[in-house]
Amino acid sequence: MRAAVFIATGQPLVVETVTDPVPDPDQVILDVAYAGICGSDLHMTENPNMTPGIILGHEFAGTIAEIGSNVSGSWRIGDRVTALPLNACCHCDACDADLPALCPDNLFTGTTLRIQGAYAQLVKARGSMLQRLPDGVGFEGGAMVEPLAVGHHIVSMARMPHNADVLILGGGPIGIAVALFARHAGARKVVVSERSPDRRSLARASGATHVIDPAAGDVGRAFAAIAGGCKPQVVFECVGLPGMLDEAIALVGVRGQIVVAGVILKQDSFLPIVALGKEVTIQYSQAYTERDFEAVIGAIAKGEVKPGPIHTSTVGLDELPAAFEALRGQPRECKVLIKPS
């Protein structure tokens, strides 16, 4: 099969012919119809310790091409599916609690040579992680279920009251997914703070009731002007830079909630007395569950959620290396999909 392969930090991906994957007994092989480029893929390739030869890609949809001998369920060759890109141990506390994404031994598809990803014509997935795509959910939408499930999970972690006024820090793909599902969950004001004018427009098209340019003035004052003088009841931190949690604590209202989704790989700090003085609840959100995938697929199928505006462009495998590099400094794009065939 053909695949886009990571060679070295600082170099573009290289499209090569590689060996077709072979399923373990509990796995299936999918013909990849579409795969998505995630910001975490970009960050991985900037790590000097990244292993050469990895095929990235954990957002995908396609058809079943081969089924392992131990895969249970009514799956058939040709079934239209997506899958949670999780490969957990199945016997730890997290797995016993049906939280495979929190398994300490979980390997995300497309992050290791052992579990290669979907920037390719074929990809392996656990049979237990398959999710059927019903009528009304095309392959493009199916490939966006994974990032949308991240947003759905983040919103569900907030236990958001109906008609809440919420603030989302960051209008990248995850922030926009949070805006979409915050509206779907019944938020009254959904305000996205984002520097990029293109992403502010995408946020508007995807569910935000209002947008703020944080470079144009004080975010707290801008939010209060929108929400009748009130502070946000929930702040979703979707940026992932040091200092953003401290800012979220300053912005949120009394007994407000902060859900942290931004990934920071270094030490960060905040002033605890500010959070203590408002009895702020801080909740972290990591990945998703099978229920999040099911909820997203159902919402798309029913037309309750329309992911179309998030999908900003599609590239083939040969175009992928250049498109991938362009995303490092391109805030205009939101979700770029790959069509490997």
Results as ranks from 00 to 15, higher is better:
17 T>K: 12
47 N>Y: 04
252 V>Y: 00
89 C>H: 08
38 C>M: 11
247 E>N: 10
127 G>V: 11
133 L>W: 01
305 V>S: 00
266 K>F: 06
105 D>W: 05
137 V>P: 01
263 V>Q: 12
52 P>H: 07
211 V>F: 04
222 A>L: 04
292 D>S: 14
260 V>C: 05
223 F>L: 10
37 I>C: 06
171 G>I: 09
322 A>N: 08
229 G>N: 02
171 G>P: 09
198 D>Y: 10
54 I>Y: 02
137 V>C: 05
209 T>R: 05
53 G>L: 10
242 P>T: 15
214 P>S: 09
116 Q>P: 11
282 I>E: 01
256 G>H: 02
64 I>V: 15
198 D>V: 12
190 V>A: 06
82 T>N: 02
196 S>K: 05
189 K>G: 00
277 G>R: 09
118 A>P: 09
256 G>W: 01
179 A>K: 09
201 S>C: 11
33 A>R: 07
78 G>Y: 13
143 A>H: 08
148 L>D: 05
332 R>N: 07
336 V>F: 07
255 R>W: 08
45 T>P: 02
195 R>F: 15
94 A>W: 03
17 T>G: 04
60 F>M: 13
14 V>E: 15
171 G>M: 05
171 G>K: 00
51 T>P: 00
7 I>R: 14
182 A>C: 15
280 V>A: 04
177 A>E: 03
70 N>Q: 14
280 V>R: 02
92 C>A: 06
71 V>N: 00
118 A>N: 09
266 K>L: 08
